[in-house]
Design a protein around this nucleic acid. Sequence first.
DNA 1: GCTAACGCGTACATTCCCGTACGAGATAGA
DNA 2: TCTATCTCGTACGGGAATGTACGCGTTAGC
Lengths: 201, 201
Amino acid sequence: MVPAEMRPRRRADAERSVARIVSAARASLSRDPDATVDDIAKAAGVGRMTLYGHFRTRPELVETALIDALHCGEAVLAGIDLSGDAREAMTRLLTSSWSLVAESTALLTAAQKVLSAARLRELHAGAAQRVEQLIRRGQQQGVFRTDLPIVWLVNAVHYILNGAAEENRAGRMETEDVTGVVIATVQSILAVPPSEARATV
Amino acid sequence: MVPAEMRPRRRADAERSVARIVSAARASLSRDPDATVDDIAKAAGVGRMTLYGHFRTRPELVETALIDALHCGEAVLAGIDLSGDAREAMTRLLTSSWSLVAESTALLTAAQKVLSAARLRELHAGAAQRVEQLIRRGQQQGVFRTDLPIVWLVNAVHYILNGAAEENRAGRMETEDVTGVVIATVQSILAVPPSEARATV
DNA sequence: GCTAACGCGTACATTCCCGTACGAGATAGA
DNA sequence: TCTATCTCGTACGGGAATGTACGCGTTAGC
């Protein structure tokens, strides 16, 4: 709530602790949405009380972790060239940030239990919109399908990313294989299906 | 554990209660994996103590619900013609039972928290194998892709079904639209991609 | 070096859920 | 009608997680 600039100055070690806690929270929560405050503190290598010194409640911590992941996502997205052929742009996007997007989505579901729906929409709107715009541009270029609702296409991509991340965690897919599988699957979902292609001609 | 035939006879009203509880458990758990025993009892319209009269522990209830859903799935699958063109067979399968499969998958994730991995594999093996065999047959027919691991294809279909069910629950997709969207998406995922088609020829 | 800020542990109150114990009233089924 | 079975409420104990209170030792930063 309070802008970072207005809070009383923090000491350097406090800054480091907070960073480690947020990082641990992102990792723990995206792995297990029900991760305990104690789990996160242990993962961060700090005491539970130290954590409570920086975050008053668990929901506040979850929200901070989600915001952090979304900001990272925004930053990475901003650095990717999304112009040109939408299919190639999507491949670039997935190659460089599928794990980040998957993490954000997992965090989002973790946050659904503790944050209000309105707050969630507010936070997630930006991130999802970038993907949606890319898909929309692909549709205008005629390389992405238009026979399914765009909301579904956006979310289907997220479900696939999440699923691939989970397969990887569960040991059913090697980390080095994920990128290729994700790209192939997503491109198949977004591509113009044969039936529609005929209709378009 | 104990076969139904060997347990002492139950009265008709008890039979009805159990049926309502299992049904409520399936519905509640597939909506919220963390549904409380009390939630389920309320949804079933019985007291919590009545529930405990039939199921000793929550894990036992979860397992029963999962088994029930899987059995329903098996029964439906057994009634579907899976011969002929694998694509059409898949469409028939999805049309008649996407919601059932989605429910089973959701229940499976709910069960992952309370049942052992070994027990889960044991229970789920049959259901997943039917889908896997269908996909494998499609690959032999040359209508389904072979460039991605079959395990991934099977699970990707499950992720999509789950996702579609969630979109429907969240009010982002109309119930009457789900079937079409699911079929279109799954067929796109399984279809032979253009690049592989060229290579095959 | 001084001081405020920080790390961190113990202890405690609270809440929520699970599972058990007991028992009184209702009902299916013979 | 009679009885075993079933429903279901209250009450209780245990466990886990959240958040608070207090305090001592340490360290960053001036």
